[in-house]
Amino acid sequence: MLLQLDKAGIRFGGLRAVQDLDLAIQEGQLVGLIGPNGAGKTTVFNLITGIYAPTEGDIKLSGRSIVGLGPVKVAASGIARTFQNIRLFGGLTVEENVKVALFRHQGATLAESALRLPRYQQEEREAEEEVRKLLETFGLLASAHLGAEELSYGLRRRLEIARALATRPKLLLLDEPAAGMNPSEADDLMHLIRWVRDTFGVTILLIEHHMPVVMGICERITVLDHGARIAEGTPAEIRANPLVIEAYLGAEAHA
């Protein structure tokens, strides 16, 4: 099991934003996390990435607890994410945004780079190649030297995913990657995400509101409502689950 949440939960004062959440993701899976607005989906991401520490339960990555490590160590242990409200590095170019995420994997010291020693040169070549490949994959090569803020909304979302992949994660968390896209753009992106999973061998957990696409590409889906899990299963099982229909459409529609 790559990621395991064991009765994880968090309280903010009297509010239980997430409670008793069990979630298990196997290596290589593409898993969806869905639920109505305010169900606590992004809070789950914040718990996994160490921005919040769970007040109850445990979170394990490859069998080891990552509770209390904080965002930096969690990122170093192999979890990368994108954000619902895009958070690119504004003053940096598209290329630099991806390159800076390789930092952890480059060992050359400042002295080595000042003197252009072989290790620096080789790392630099490899980094450039990796950045180029990622930009190409996400259709960003033509805009590599633009400022990140000059990109269109859809491209900015793609750049965030490219940047997250540059950290070479085991687990990639995507928070509404298709938000603000029209159905055909969202569909393209979803297929790209599936392709990325297959090509890079990365495990993906994603939050998304475009139901047809989520149902189309995810292998397992977990449904949250009011901070608790109300269903878990394959897309077909989720689609037929009365509790899910009720949570989304309200009790009357179901009746």
Binding site: V72, A75, A80, V100
Partner: peptide
């Protein structure tokens, strides 16, 4: 430059 833009995001991208 990344840290001066956002310390939190930089941390999440593995920048020390």
């Amino acid at each position: 430059r990344a840290v001066s833009h956002s310390r939190e995001t930089a941390a999440l991208m593995g920048i020390p």
